[in-house]
Design a protein around this nucleic acid. Structure first.
Length: 497
DNA sequence: AAAAAAC
């Protein structure tokens, strides 16, 4: 908010905004207060008045910026005047629909909505796949004003006629870019066609890619664009370090990092489901309480894992990118990237799980020889070079049992002449921060030098140049479906699946 | 390349 609405606050803080300035109902404000929030985040300060005014919104903001509240609070407010206390389901049609790409995210948004609306007569529920439909159907039949859903299961309910979307006045597309990436466009089109044309649509996306713009152009009406600085990538609260390790040293490296940094809780991201399961097992064997969360585990296992982690019963949550976006875990001190993500965008989301709400956090990434491309992509996206350090893994024996002596750092990383200036931490003279693997212990299990480590990384000058050119990261991975074709055919008869 | 999501 740019205006100075708070004129008579006794507190002398000049422009400290409060939630009171939005004209939200006392019941909502009470819930907000009980949640412990006092000051709106930037996205909230910008979005709440716009949503209250009934305008469509094109929002660029990530979770962790208070995005959920930025649309939930004004939506609840707008539903309130017609809130019905009647017990009749017919009096509680779905009037607000919120779609998210993953089940966990849907669950989390629903929990937020539930919290913010608990002092109002409004009802809400959540539907997503992987769990029994019947309880969801029951809840829908009892009637809800606010429905949070993943697209597939929602359509399932539509087909079963357990829900009618004909009275939806407000629609939220959360993590819209992710939904497109995941091939949800046909489902989204199907859902959008069921909604009244006369409605308010809020689209939130990490990026405004051409696909997202096309989607917005098709389904939003004169949207107000709201952009909040990408908080996490440049978040000073998050210390980002990349460790160069041999691929086969990675499991040991994770265990070592957890031990040496005495991490109470950490999410470890892997690129594959198998890799996540495997790592969880290795860590368990190493005496670290760990569990895996990914799409091949049952929904109950996923929820159990997440709950146990939130309760602090698990030290290491080993996850695929199912957990990269949106999940809000309080006071997570660190995130480890076992693999660097193929999609640089996902790096930002992953490390966004730590250093939230003003707390500090560490983003520690393992980088092996064949991941330099990913590293370069990430640096390009976040527009700055990452601090790269060697990591000597001492905790686990190498499989080949070789006993060659460890190469000196010079040998391993090449002479710092050609383009090595970017890695201050590699400077021998510098007082490199003491990190894992540097304690004086006999070691001699380093693998022969990798080509990766011999060749200094070339900091692509274009990487730093292009930052001025566009805010938008280049999307590398094309969706499985011919998105352009689908988008080109918006409104056209779609293929059935 | 891999991941996610309806049955």
């Amino acid at each position: 908010m740019s205006d100075s609405a708070a004129t008579n606050t006794s507190t002398a803080q000049a422009a400290a905004p409060t939630f009171d300035q939005f004209g939200l109902s006392a019941d909502i404000l009470k819930a907000v207060r009980e949640s412990g929030y006092t000051t709106p985040t930037p996205i909230q300060a910008q979005a709440i008045p716009v949503v209250l005014a009934g305008r469509d919104v094109m929002g660029a903001a990530q979770t962790g910026t208070g995005k959920t509240a930025s649309f939930s609070l004004p939506i609840i407010q707008r539903l309130l005047p017609n809130a019905n206390t009647s017990a009749s389901p017919a009096r509680h049609p779905v009037r607000a629909l919120m779609l998210t790409p993953t089940r966990e995210l849907a669950d989390q948004v629903a929990a937020n909505v539930q919290t913010y609306s608990k002092h109002t007569p409004l009802r809400s529920t959540v539907v997503f796949g992987g769990v029994d439909m019947n309880p969801q159907s029951d809840a829908l039949r009892r009637g809800v004003e606010i429905l949070i859903a993943t697209p597939g299961r929602l359509l399932d309910h539509v087909q079963q006629k357990t829900v009618n979307l004909g009275q939806v006045q407000m629609l939220v597309l959360d993590e819209a870019d992710r939904m497109l990436d995941m091939g949800f466009l046909p489902d989204l089109q199907r859902i959008l066609n069921l909604l009244p044309k006369e409605r308010q649509t809020l689209l939130f996306s990490a990026t405004f890619s051409p696909e997202i713009k096309k989607l917005a152009a098709t389904y939003l009406r004169n949207p107000q664009t709201i952009e909040v600085a990408r908080s996490n990538s440049t978040n000073a609260n998050v210390r980002q370090i990349v460790y160069e390790v041999h691929e086969s040293d990675k499991s040991g490296a994770v265990a070592q990092i957890i031990r040496e940094r005495e991490l109470k809780q950490v999410i470890v991201f892997c690129n594959s489901k198998i890799g996540a399961s495997r790592l969880a097992r290795v860590l368990e064997k190493d005496g670290i309480v760990a569990t895996a969360i990914h799409g091949d585990r049952s929904q109950s296992e996923r929820m159990q894992a997440l709950d146990a982690f939130k309760r602090g019963e698990i030290e290491a949550l080993v996850a695929t990118d199912v957990a990269a976006r949106g999940l809000d875990i309080a006071e997570l001190p660190a995130v480890i990237n076992f693999d660097l993500p193929f999609n640089a965008e996902d790096y930002v989301h992953r490390i966004g799980r730590t250093g939230r709400a003003g707390a500090s956090g560490d983003a520690l990434s393992l980088c092996s020889a064949n991941e330099r491309k990913q590293l370069a992509d990430i640096e390009k996206l976040i527009k700055r070079p990452l601090d790269v350090e060697p990591l000597e893994v001492t905790t686990r024996a190498r499989r080949d049992g070789s006993s060659g002596s460890a190469p000196r750092r010079d040998e391993r990383f090449g002479r710092p002449e050609r383009g090595e200036h970017r890695h201050a931490s590699r400077d021998e003279s510098g007082s490199r921060r003491r990190t894992t693997g540097t304690h004086d212990r006999p070691r001699g299990r380093q693998q022969p030098v990798d080509e990766f480590f011999l060749k200094p990384y070339e900091p692509s000058p274009s990487a730093m140049k292009r930052q001025e050119e566009t805010v938008e990261p280049e999307r590398k991975s094309a969706p499985k479906q011919p998105l352009a074709a689908l988008l080109g055919g918006l409104g056209m008869p779609r293929k059935s699946s």
